[in-house]
């Protein structure tokens, strides 16, 4: 049973200090994410969605509690160890794509591969495969500014999957897109989950987007408010 758990959060506390005030985000949060899951996290602003996503991605650490990934603690890793862990295990998809504006689509997709030991030829092959998967092989040499928002997000997806990470973390991936384009992106995420087995955690405000996920968790003031939906 435990082998099937990708993320296991145990008694996670998270608080911020702002001036003399301490703001509690999570106060003993427990959560599990199974391998192959497609999880949507919804909730109002300030509910802790992004903080949770950041902790899952190792760009933020809990104040206390344990975060286990595939059975190993990641909340105790150093900054350098976290960088390597992210490179090996996590693909990020951002609301505003976060592509490097001066690099072509292919060069953007290649970035995570620069952290591996792949040869230039292997990197090129992987980039081509990823761009084909997002149906942008013909735009490989284009700069982000020469592409639409939907195309840019597809490049970002290609960048997120090119090094074959176990987990994709999506921060409002369709928040900057029109409905039609958003549906295309969400179908692509669904495909990655169902056909390629990627575990996906998606933070979103959009109930239509959440429908593409296998399950949805609602956060409010740092707690899951519909407990029956939580694992």
């Amino acid at each position: 049973m435990t082998d099937n758990i990708l993320f296991d959060l145990k008694g996670v506390h998270k608080s911020f200090t702002r001036g003399k005030e301490t703001i509690k985000i999570f106060d003993g949060l427990d959560m599990q994410i199974k391998k192959g899951d497609f999880l949507a996290i919804m909730g109002p602003s300030g509910s802790g969605k992004t903080t949770l996503l950041n902790m899952l991605g190792g760009v933020d650490q809990p104040t206390s509690g344990e975060v286990l990934f595939d059975g190993s603690r990641v909340d105790t890793l150093s900054e350098g160890q976290l960088s390597k862990w992210r490179a090996n295990n996590i693909g990020f998809i951002f609301q505003f794509y976060n592509l490097m504006p001066m690099l072509s689509a292919a060069r953007n997709v290649e970035l995570p591969l620069l952290l591996t030991n792949l040869s230039k030829k292997d990197r090129k092959n992987s980039v081509e495969t990823a761009l084909k998967l997002v149906e942008l092989a013909d735009r490989a040499s284009h700069l982000p500014k020469e592409m639409s928002g939907g195309q840019q997000q597809r490049v970002a997806i290609a960048r997120a999957i090119v090094s074959d990470p176990k987990l994709l973390l999506c921060d409002e991936p369709t928040g900057d897109l029109d409905r039609h384009t958003a549906d295309e992106i969400l179908e692509m995420l669904q495909l990655l989950n169902e056909k390629f087995g990627k575990t996906i955690v998606m933070v979103t405000h959009d109930p239509s987007a959440a429908k593409y996920a296998k399950r949805t968790l609602h956060l409010d003031k740092g707690e899951f408010v519909e407990k029956d939906l939580a694992a």
Binding site: V59, G80, S83, A87, N98, M100, L111, L115, R159
Partner: peptide
């Protein structure tokens, strides 16, 4: 973004 991807 680069740091998030894993750049040092």
């Amino acid at each position: 973004t680069l740091r998030a991807i894993g750049f040092s």
